[in-house]
Nucleic acid binder design. Sequence first.
RNA 1: GCGGGUAUAGCUCAGUUGGUUAGAGCGCUUGGUUGUGGUCCAAGAGGUCGUCGGUUCAAAUCCGACUACUCGCCCCA
Length: 414
Amino acid sequence: MAALQPVRGTHDLLPDAARAHRAVEARAFEVASRFGFGEIMTPIFEFTEVFKRTLGDTSDIVTKEMYTFEDRGGESLTLRPEGTAAIVRAFISGGLAQQVPVKAFYRGPMFRYERPQKGRQRQFHQVGIEILGVEGPAADIEVIACGAHILEALGLGGTVTVELNTLGDVESRAAYRETLVAYLQGRKGELSEDSLTRLEKNPLRILDSKDEGDRAVVAEAPILADSLNDASRDFFARVQEGLAALNVPIEISPRLVRGLDYYTHTAFEFTTTKLGAQGTVLAGGRYDGLVKQMGGPPTPGVGWAAGVERLAMLLADPPPAPRPLAVIPAGAEADTLALTVTDRLRRAGYAVDLGYSGNMGKRMKRANKIAARAAVILGPDEIAAGAATVRDLDSGDQEAVPFDALEGALDRFR
RNA sequence: GCGGGUAUAGCUCAGUUGGUUAGAGCGCUUGGUUGUGGUCCAAGAGGUCGUCGGUUCAAAUCCGACUACUCGCCCCA
């Protein structure tokens, strides 16, 4: 067991797991398509600068979690740690500013050098959506509603809570930050070590702290809502009204803040209690300054990303493998016939298994093991009669079906 | 990056105070059944006890380091 292991924090997806994984992606894309999102596929690596500029120099992702390397030309490249930066880069490189609003869906692997835990890997997969170029709250509403639909489609409707907050526009956020820092400076002595670092790097994060001492300090801290200007307050109210009209149940969570620097206004998180410390299953927000910050035309944006592995773990009933037909030759004379019958049925759209060896008993066992719906038995008797014996493997009933009528007669086993 | 726990067959797990050839269930292979699967019965294959080192007459068992997994922190999907 020791010798040949996958790289730490990476995992193989064997057929059952792969099917669950693909099911999550497929459901997500299907629902997003109904909302009008089109898929954008970007490379899994970018110039390191792309992530440094978008995520902010102080974020943990940039300072300690990126897989960064030099290629042979001496360029610094980085395996993408998240999806938004690449989508925004593609938006700028591809001149999509001419076509706003742009509604993008993406999926695929992301890479972060972290200590693995349940629901946290070094290579993991996300699906995500972004709307670029819409200033009003209609986009926030649509994006959150889409996330809720997807989780519903996955059968997770009842198990996930939607937490919502606003960070306000740039002005409000800056004002609050100042008020908060002033307050926290006064009670510095009571803060945890982690929070003292946060005070320098990302003071809003302290609101989110799990440390008991921090929580006591935070409980008496000034509230962000009080620092909102009228425009921000109005924006937030309209987001809430829209979601209420759509019956998306939300919890206002005044201490919800997002880690990455580029967020403004709406912030949200879909969480479950079933995954331990990694309960966030889908999260995002609005990032009005990002496109401009990356060198594109000023363009507002809003979106989210969801963790495919986390969602797959929650799937109540993982998708079953498809049930095939089993073609079973009895005796060597039937081999060629079995081959051609199998081929015909496959061309007609059936999933068909034709074993490679073994007598009839063994082949029946295999048919049973792969959960075949029916066995199509071909032997000397069948060849003589010009009709296959078709056995329903659930009921055990058998009937004779003329060779040339097989395609139509097997429809109920499809 | 920090702190705790765990590591025995493909999987889930037993294994006494250190003692001879390390077990069970499931799964797998074969046979009972050379034209009929599931159930049942029987037999069989499969283990350098995570790796390396130490203590001991003797280590799966005690000690150390490493590796992986896992829980929490940080951070985040």
